[in-house]
Design a protein around this nucleic acid. Structure first.
Lengths: 359, 359
DNA sequence: AGTCATTTTGCAAACGTTTTCAAGTAGTGT
DNA sequence: ACACTACTTGAAAACGTTTGCAAAATGACT
């Protein structure tokens, strides 16, 4: 009743021991489900816990050498539906295994990664998951050396050779897009790039150029617009592309969010999709299928990626000695209704003779 | 080199002390920026930390009575863009104050709330934020009594009278929608409800009925379809509504996601929005404005809600004695292009004589 | 030199657990 | 009854910090 403003202490293992009339080691044993505890005492302890409303203190447990039952997750940006989806599936997988999630966002600041990783790996978390578009990775080596469980979730296929990684055939996905577009007859294909410092952005641009080259189509720099994976940049890029004296007949955006922006620019100018302009995105976030027309895009198995990474990490936590796995999940080109052959193009003409113009 | 499979211990405060040739309390004092440490020693300690790559162990610190610099966040579902947006803004606000986020998802299971809250409040976190559509709140009383810092983020306006709450004028938002629709001349307005166990769902349905009553319009149960805030349920509900022998001329969905579903059902039947059917949503998630046509909806200040809640919590952590605040943020009806007067309706006829039919 | 206040330091006791160790208690087979 | 297991228990030592207390060092006055 006359509590000081300081927090009233909550029941500890010792309180429970006193209440149940046993030693506190016994309580700990009950807590951890050890064999060799007399059923009677176990009952008494359980009752006492119930009466006192006891909750284990995770900090103390983990300090004492037990598990913290906490997994760290470092992401660069929560706002992206891509990230959100993955986070959700990680969360679900972890929850079923009885682990909690400590979420850290770098808000795009690379240098924060190391700080968070340090924090997490020194006691806080039993393992760490990283969803960051890393280029150079100074601190990963340390984790490896310390034999600390971690898994990388990557949106590109470049890796360091010693880290456990979950990734997708995303480069192939970009190639598939280009192939599909070219087969439909498109010759002037616009490209809206991703954030310059993300490896995935470079990868997709590279695939774009490679596919063009493979089909002997010329590369027109004017058709490539920078973006940063955000809606706004997509809008600007699409505007630039459609303002071209000779606008593209198809636009490939490096992610769905920017493809949505293409829709809006097109709509505002009365350009019909797919009749006047074909559009392809990347990621297949949930909204892609709700668009009008439904967006053709590269499906990244976001849910499976999260799940797999979480499972891998859980395994690594169980058995830290196990060698680093690398899992590559397949992407899939999901063809919906946002693409068709360009206007004035007839499939009857072999594609090599089609109206390629170069610049 | 010959490390046992067990993790190599990382540097502790004692290692630093040895390296620097001081006692470990001195190191602690340097760590916590205490006055009364000789500049020379401080330097030596700092250098030693640097050399050893020391990182503080948060578990230990918080066990010993310091702050964990961690805030718990309990949400019921990460998949919702509504939630995602709020989480993001909380995360940002917390990050600037140097706090980390421990995220717990109940996946819709009410009973998990208490478990997580227990976990978080016993050592793990310095304070707790709850974004849950709570009805009865057994465990909140305990928190209050323990004087533990917490803040509730609510999507409805009902509250317990002693908890600090951040909420919006969401009931009024629903009333605004109805008023707008009725003023446009709609008399048969369909309603797609939210998840039955969320207070906000009841609140919006209530507002729907109240608005109808206030305008002397009859309530037709057939026009109210159950939903659960998910896309699928919205699709089913919209289908049922538009299958009615006398379908509504406008549909009010209790959140945007379900409104999107209405768009799709309408499209699949060649019903034009807003010409043949007006649609209104709730929340104003980012996609709402990208829809075709852009969706009229009730804007909830998601970012501000998250920010405010985070700030309130931070304050409470600084000063646990301070009284519980209650902040009500305004909603706003954002009129875009998904509504217009019903077909065959002319504003010249006073609304009372319009074709209300009842059932 | 002697007193005092002030700054600087180290020791030791928490914090709430897990875990090792050794000792105690039954339960068996002879 | 006796030795042998196998089960059951409690005491005590970690884990890495913070913090209260008291001792030591310093400096400033007399």
């Amino acid at each position: 009743m006359s509590d000081k403003p300081g927090r009233p202490r909550s029941a500890t293992i010792k309180d429970v021991a006193r209440e149940a009339g046993v030693s506190y080691s016994t309580v700990s044993r009950v807590l951890n489900d050890y064999r060799h505890v007399h059923p009677d005492k176990r009952r008494r302890v359980l009752d006492a816990m119930e009466r006192l409303g006891y909750t284990v203190n995770l900090q103390a447990r983990s300090l004492a050498g037990g598990r913290s039952q906490m997994v760290g997750l470092v992401v660069h940006d929560l706002g992206n539906p891509y990230t959100a989806q993955i986070v959700q599936s990680i969360d679900e997988e972890l929850a079923t295994a009885g682990y909690e999630l400590a979420l850290h966002t770098t808000h795009g600041h690379h240098h924060k990664e190391a700080v968070y990783v340090d924090l997490l790996t020194h006691g806080l978390a039993d393992g760490v998951l990283m969803l960051i578009p890393l280029g150079p990775t100074p601190y990963l080596r340390q984790l490896r050396d310390r034999n600390y469980p971690y898994v990388i979730l990557s949106d590109h296929q470049q890796h360091d050779g010693y880290s456990p990684v979950v990734t997708t055939t995303s480069r192939q996905g970009a190639v598939d897009v280009m192939q599909c577009l070219i087969e439909l007859g498109h010759r002037r294909i616009g490209f809206i790039g991703g954030r310059h410092d993300f490896v995935s952005a470079a990868e997709r641009l590279d695939a774009y150029r490679a596919a063009l080259a493979a089909c002997n189509l010329s590369f027109d720099p004017a058709l490539v617009q920078a973006g940063d994976y955000q809606y706004r940049s997509g809008y600007a890029a699409a505007t630039a592309l459609l303002d071209l004296p000779q606008p593209p007949t198809a636009i490939f955006a490096a992610n769905d969010l920017m493809a949505f922006a293409v829709y809006d620019v097109a709509r505002s100018r009365g350009i019909r999709i797919p009749k006047d302009l074909s559009v392809v995105g990347f990621d297949d976030v949930p909204q892609a299928s709700y668009m009008h027309p439904p967006l053709t895009t590269v499906r990244q198995p976001l849910i499976e990626m999260g799940r797999t990474a979480a499972r891998l990490l859980l395994q690594a936590i169980e058995n830290p000695a196990q060698p680093a796995d690398m899992v590559v999940l397949p992407t899939e080109l999901v063809i919906r209704d946002s693409c068709q052959p360009p206007a004035h193009f007839s499939r009857r003409f072999p594609s090599t003779t089609a109206e390629t113009k170069g610049v």
